[in-house]
């Protein structure tokens, strides 16, 4: 079974556009939506309403940087500390062209950094490429066994 794509996005417009783009890409992966950093953590760390979800990491996390409560870079830092999530593919998806964010993102261990293009066709293309690369082409690292 295909593993889901975790899309972390607070802006409803961006969310809708991203979902449209993903659906146009023809990927069959389920898309799990988190609307802020806390929800993303809940999902990844099996907490809150995701406390009893089946065990397993998403194929890729598309992570917006500017998020309410816990921002994208903080989420990234937290999950890179977790043995099980260390190798999870994370794509930072953001409006910001600020060099500072790019640098911090890579330092924290993001796998890619994508500036959302203003032109929609470019946007669709970027999302599709990302989804296909990380969800299909890229072989995910083997799941480490959870230490009991």
């Amino acid at each position: 079974m295909l593993r889901p794509i975790l899309l972390v996005e607070d802006n409803p417009n961006d969310l809708e556009l991203s979902l449209t783009a993903l659906s146009k890409s023809g990927l069959a992966n389920e898309v799990v939506i988190a609307r802020d950093g806390e929800e993303a953590c809940d999902y990844l760390f099996y907490r809150g309403r995701y406390a009893s979800r089946p065990h397993g990491n998403p194929a890729v996390v598309l992570l917006d940087i500017k998020l309410p409560k816990i921002d994208g870079l903080e989420v990234l830092a937290m999950l890179r500390k977790e043995e099980e999530l260390r190798h999870l593919p994370v794509v930072l998806l953001t409006s910001s062209r600020e060099e500072q964010d790019v640098l911090t993102g890579y330092k924290l261990g993001s796998n890619a950094y994508v500036v959302k293009p203003v032109a929609f066709p470019d946007f669709i293309k970027a999302i599709q490429d990302l989804g296909v690369f990380w969800a299909v082409v890229n072989e995910p690292p083997p799941m480490p066994r959870r230490a009991q």
Binding site: N11, N13, D14, L17, S95, K116, P117, V118, A119, F120, F123
Partner: peptide, 8 residues
């Protein structure tokens, strides 16, 4: 962001 949304 808003420009992206308008265009999108």
């Amino acid at each position: 962001a808003p420009f992206r949304h308008i265009s999108g």
